[in-house]
Design a protein around this nucleic acid. Structure first.
Lengths: 341, 341
DNA sequence: CAACAAATTTTTCGCGCGTAAAATTTAGAG
DNA sequence: CTCTAAATTTTACGCGCGAAAAATTTGTTG
């Protein structure tokens, strides 16, 4: 193998004796050419270092094999983890994933959407900011690109995949009520629909059990949940503002902050004897198992969400099993019992 | 504004009465055309919805305005955070950042490098896997693309930007020795050069203070540091294998795991009375301030690293201030004193 | 060996834009 | 109003490849 760098398909064609259009077919789908030809191409490829020019390919193809992925905040472990899974599955499926993050800001989300659209992707997986999104912009994007929305269910795109808050929240509310004082609900900033749904689900679950809902709203509208949990937590503990010694946080990051607040205030957290309060979260973030104490929470099925989002998207791209209406897939959460509640 | 979608520059040229080459100039640099023309273009742009075709642009430009960013593990908060800053600064500088993650795997790193190279980026910021990298592959990449290496100093590329482990580690070793029992060193899996440098720096610092270094090596070679910290920590505590009640972890994620281990074993962590052990980390990860107890650590200057990496890269791209030899910039760490040590 | 379909090659065109050179217009100074 | 340099337009070409149609070769079947 000379490893000689080849720049164009034309060159490779001359050097290998295979016609350029045939090479073109090969690179679009190796199985589309005769087996013997496939081998000849691959022999040539071992000899020479060549990759089709991405730009030329994408300019001419009617449909690219790019999959756009947009998340609201990539530094959030939930999204980091789910993007990791999506990327891997994209590659395995022969697509080219390209990741954007809105960094929590509307303007950047719009930018990313605009850039993404100009990439003419085969499809897109979008977790919108939610309340912070320009719905019209997301809508226009989804009109132009086959789009599956995940995590944050804004009514856009051909399908939605996410968690069933109305199943998962009651699950943990039931557990907490059964094992101790009914929980109050420590709400995350309402950055997206999940925030509101979780609150509603909490209230419903509490009422169904005959308890009065106790919702604690927090100031702030950004994605620094831990900080909010810590600062608000300290304030609440100092002012004795917690209506219950059991706190259900609307996500794990908030719970991590509250855990830190309790620690700072010398409150022992857990369900054992000598514990002053119980704290539970939601999502089973990658780090929830490493908090002190380890966090009791409800898991979201990351892998299932990633897998399902992509398979629905691929179906839409291929025109298979395309439902008439917007399809919503909700995965159930599972109770993850640890020491914190 | 009609918002009519325009597909080609040709169309826009006809509709606006401005010649296509002039439009082309405008899109490459708005300031390169006469002020009055600039305004005419911008008026037309308000009227019509048009963006130059990315693929056509990049195919023809000698140099793209793409900046490739490759990190070993995007789900690591350190990288998530630094990527966030780099992305933002790229955009502000008029470049187009595109992020890749190796997900901790050599094969994916090579893939990303290959894809990135075929994107013909103006330059790249690469944090290699380190020990897990195919140095030859990274080398070949750096030969083809102006490359600044950060975080993990493999001897490749035109420049390196990172932290000065030989300054930061002694800083915290001194502190720990001054305020209590000299620390043992809980080593991260040697995934990259930082791992070894930190161990060396620790040993040197201890010897300088007249103490015997105590290094604890751990099994494992993956990026799940918290898990390793937890599992190894539990094992060490159970077997009384910790040679000191003060443990310096080679990074915060490991420390977070060890903190969880101590909690599980009922060991109180901190420097106050009644504390059984002290734990310190390195990096000042975004979540280090929310652990229980909050983690004493040495900060890496994320923003400075991001800023410097980019400015060096831009200089190289523009051909300004290009040093003759590979240039290394090391930032100093700062002691971040919290409750854990 | 004839016959036929599949695979391949040949030929030709087009994608949307960058770029260079030559021709023309514009703006500002005198 | 004239002159000159800068800006702009015109013209022409090329980038590397996808795609379609027609011509040719290949492999398989009877």
């Amino acid at each position: 193998m000379s490893g000689k760098k080849i720049k164009t398909m034309e060159e490779l064609s001359q050097l290998s004796g295979i016609s350029r259009p045939t090479l073109s077919k090969y690179f679009q789908d190796p199985k589309s050419v005769r087996e013997s030809t496939k081998e000849r191409v691959e022999t040539a490829l071992e000899e020479y270092d060549y990759r089709p020019n991405i730009f030329a390919v994408n300019q001419n193809r009617k449909l690219t094999r790019t999959i756009g992925i947009l998340v609201p905040y990539l530094a959030d472990p939930f999204f980091a983890e789910i993007v990791r899974m999506i990327e891997r599955q994209c590659i395995d499926a022969g697509y080219w994933p390209i990741v954007f993050s809105a960094h929590g800001e509307k303007e950047m989300e719009n930018n990313a959407l605009s850039t993404l659209e100009s990439l003419r992707p085969a499809g897109a997986l979008v977790a919108p900011l939610g309340r912070g999104s320009d719905i019209d912009v997301v809508q226009r994007f989804a009109d132009a690109v086959p789009t599956v929305v995940f995590d944050s269910n804004v009514p856009v795109g051909q399908a939605f995949v996410g968690s069933d808050n109305f199943q998962s929240i009651p699950l943990i509310v039931d557990y907490l009520c059964r094992t101790g004082e009914p929980p109050c609900f420590f709400e995350m900033p309402p950055v997206n629909p999940n925030a509101n749904k979780r609150r509603e689900a909490y209230c419903l679950a509490m009422e169904r059990l005959g308890h009065d809902p106790m919702v604690i709203q927090v100031a702030g509208s950004d994605w620094g949940f831990e900080r909010i949990g810590l600062e608000e937590g300290v304030r609440l503990i100092d002012s004795r503002g917690l209506p219950s010694n059991t706190v259900l946080c609307s996500n794990d990051r908030l719970a991590i902050g509250l855990l830190a607040a309790a620690y700072e205030k010398g409150l022992r957290v857990g369900h054992g004897p000598g514990c002053a309060m119980r704290i539970a979260g939601h999502d089973d973030h990658p780090w929830a198992q490493f908090t002190c104490p380890p966090l009791t929470t409800v898991s979201q099925d990351y892998k299932a969400i990633a897998r399902r989002s992509l398979s629905v998207l691929f179906d839409i791209i291929k025109g298979e099993n395309v439902p008439d209406e917007r399809e919503e897939t909700l995965f159930e959460g599972k109770l993850v019992l640890r020491a914190s509640a």
